[in-house]
Each structure stands twice: as C-alpha cells, then as structure tokens.
Amino acid sequence: MNTILSKSPGSEIKEHISYRGQLKRSAITTGPGLVWLVLLLLIPLAALGVISFLSRGDYGEIQLPFTLENYKRLLGFGLLGFDSLYPAILLRSLALGAGTALICVVTGLPLAFFISRLPARFKTPALTLVIIPFWTNLLIRTYAWQILLAPESWLTRFVHAIAIGNVGDPLYPGTFAVAIGMVCDYLPFLVLPLYASVEKLDWSLAEAAMDLGANRMRVFRHALLPQIMPGLIAGTIFVFLPATGQFVIPDLLGGAKTVMLGNAIQQQFGQSRDWPFGSAIAFVALALVMVGLWLYARKSQGKGGPDLL
C-alpha cells in the first residue's frame, strides 16, 4: 500500500488537505505568478490576436473594421491580386527551421557519440565546451559570422578555393550565412538532450547485432537509433521551433533576400507601421510553434518516443 501510494504520480499533492484548503494555498503560492503571467502574457497575446483582425489607418493607427484581410494577405491574396511575398517568407522560415534541425541532427549525432565514448574524466570538460557557446550571447556569436564570412576573409577564400560558390560572390549576407549562423547557434540545443540519451545506451544490443553479422549502418539503424530516438526527437523540436521564429540571425546575416517571419514581424511593427498585419504574422508564428509543441507532447505522451518514427 505504502509503496504503491508513494510512487503513484501526483503523490506530492497534499491529499490530506481539504479542497478549500487546497484552493487557499494555491491562491497564496500559485496566485501571484499566475496573475502576473495572465496580465503580462495572456492578455498581451490576446490583444495581439484581436488586433490581427483590425485594420490599419492612414497614419499607422489601429482602427475598425474587423477584417480577415491581414490573414489573406499573409497567404498571398492581397488587394492587388496574388503576391507570393508572404507565403514565400512563411515557407522559407519553415524550410530554414527544418534545414537547421536536419543539419544539427547530422552533425550533433557524431558529437554526442564522441563525447559519450571519451574517458570519464574528459566527458565533463567536453560537455562544458558545448555548453559555453550555449550560454554566450547570441548576438555576439552571430555578428562574428559577419566577420568570418566577409568577402575578403580567409574562410571565404578557402570556401571559394574548394569550388563552392562563385569567386567574388560574398557568402554573406544570404541564406547560406543564415544557415551557418543557425546551426552554430542551435547545435548545443540538440547535442545536450541527445547526449543524455546516448549516455544511457545499452551497447549490448549493438554487440549482439554485430555478432549476428549486421554491418555498422544496420547496427546503428536497428540497435542504437531506437534507443536514442526520444533524445533525438526532443532535440529536433528544441531546434526546429525556435529556429523557425528566429529574428536576430536572419536580421544580421540574411540581408534583404532572406527575410524570415521574425523579420517580417519587426518590419510591420517598425518601418511599415502596420501593427494589425504584424500582429497577424506574429499570431501565425505563435500558432505554428504551439501546434508543433502540442503534436510533440501528444505523441510522446501517448506512445513513448520510438514510435514517433
């Protein structure tokens, strides 16, 4: 009885306190934070939602009537016929987010395995080396790539020398620079949860598969991959969602041709002064993230990680 009770989920709930007592204590402990978040997050987001259905006045003011115009425009059906500008931005954001996640998976896997196979005393330093950039200001790491990818830098010359891109074409600004900046920024987000799974790997399965004559690729695919899937999926989500909504990296490395959702929002709230339209873009960006998160939570709760494949 005792063990069953103490291990059941939610056993930290103080069950012996009556419902009214629970409410009172909730009000004291949870109340202030809850009120804060409702006032300063829920209401602002709701306001954002409402304003996304309003119109912009001649001087940038927000005014009636209610309209779906902002969302139509975002989908390309503006007042002046079809315009692919905003659908392209939406797709580009998703593609860059997915691309970043993919490159991070491909590069993060070897790094996670490398760290986990180090002798014990080197593991913490190696992991700390991954964590340091993670805690270093994003702006600094991003603008550094402006220097590294500048037309006359040694890196640019090296890249051109091994025949990627045309000589004279700058590597920055553009999609390539944004991708580099994103991967550099988000790689730790993937490596950390992935490393946690790799560290717990049961290598005996791999050895058994080797014994049975499986080649290395098949061993990885069938014996190791299923075990690290939860970490891999969590890491991918941690990269994909924030990368899609990035603002600083495309702003500093992207230039005019690599506008993402974040930049479009900033532009509407800044120079264009079209807050209703900016709100609509922001609301769509928020919805994308929340739906992604919800799907992930639902799948991983219901079935457990490996089934997601």
Partner: peptide
C-alpha cells in the same frame, strides 16, 4: 497484506491523511 488499509489507518491516526 499490502493494500489492506493498515498504512492508511496509521496515517489517519498520525494526521497525515484524512
């Protein structure tokens, strides 16, 4: 045996459960 209610009774006497 486990699950018979003995611990519950004890916890009620202690005031750890109502």
């Amino acid at each position: 045996p486990s699950g018979c209610g003995k611990t519950t009774l004890l916890r009620i006497i202690a005031g750890l459960d109502h």
